[in-house]
Amino acid sequence: MSPYILFVMLSSLGLGTTLTFTSSHWLLAWMGLEINTLAIIPLMTNKHHPRAVEAATKYFLTQAAAAAILLFASIYNAWYSGQWFIQDMSSPVSTLMTLAIAIKLGIAPMHFWLPEVMQGISISTGLILVTWQKLAPLALLMQISHNIKPELLIILGLMSTIIGGWGGLNQTQIRKIMAYSSIAHLGWIISILHFMPALAMINLFIYLIMTITMFMTFNLLNSPTINTLAMNWSKSPILAATSALALLSLGGLPPLTGFMPKWLIIQELTNQELAPTATLLALSALLSLFFYLRLSYSLSLTIMPNTHPQTLNWNMKTTTPLPLSLMMMMTLTMLPITPTIISLF
């Protein structure tokens, strides 16, 4: 790809999300989403092979369909209420709007495209897909969250956490597993959205940190499957050890950062008299934890018998980049500063 085109695409990627953030008008928000969708497609097919083309096609079709539904819903809203402001959504249309955004985000039961698309593209593009591309639709969803029926959001959230956990159980491909992990985490975000949007923001923030860490790690280790993951402890032992912990943090085990959003969400749901829902959410996190645990088993908790490194150099010039180190620290150790983080949002 020529650098000029790459520049245009990346800046459009930024522009699209920013437009959606800043707009108060449905049409402009829709245009931002469209720019976003269009701009990532050449990035997806950058490594040009049939799987990438297939992924880009699937992505384009689902996103275009979602955007069309979104446009339809916003026009219907304008027809119904006579104005286009995002904040003043009227209630009956918001369900349609939520479902359209759910397709865009890949929330169960509209999640089927996400693992397929993730599998076709490179890890770094996958990082953009599960982090940056989620921001614009989530921003829209947060702005209309007070008008969405909480039942809808909770059902979507529960389905996402359960399906996200369940789907990942059977996978051996890292990118698909990370896609299912993304689905499960979005389920947590969605289920709290109506009651406390700020908490959803915190959850999104932590999710971004943890996901970026994991994708940077997998990118550095260059391992697309669980099997290749197992060979990495000799390349960079410290990274292998810490990223196993980072996976457990993604699963939400207590002394690590990932526990914080789960704890706060369960607390808020309990305060809303939704303790059974909170229990279901918490137990469905166990499903996700199972495949995180499997990843960390093969990443650093077992040693391949055939590559004992007696003559092997320990560090094969794999220097961990500084951003990854910083993100890793944030992924592992932010639980004690929970009050500070809460005060930021």
Binding site: W263, I266, Q267, T270, N271, A275, A278, T279, A282, L283, A285, L286
Partner: peptide, 9 residues
């Protein structure tokens, strides 16, 4: 995990 929910309630 149910204990956490119970404690919070």
């Amino acid at each position: 995990l149910p204990l956490l929910v119970a404690l919070l309630s």
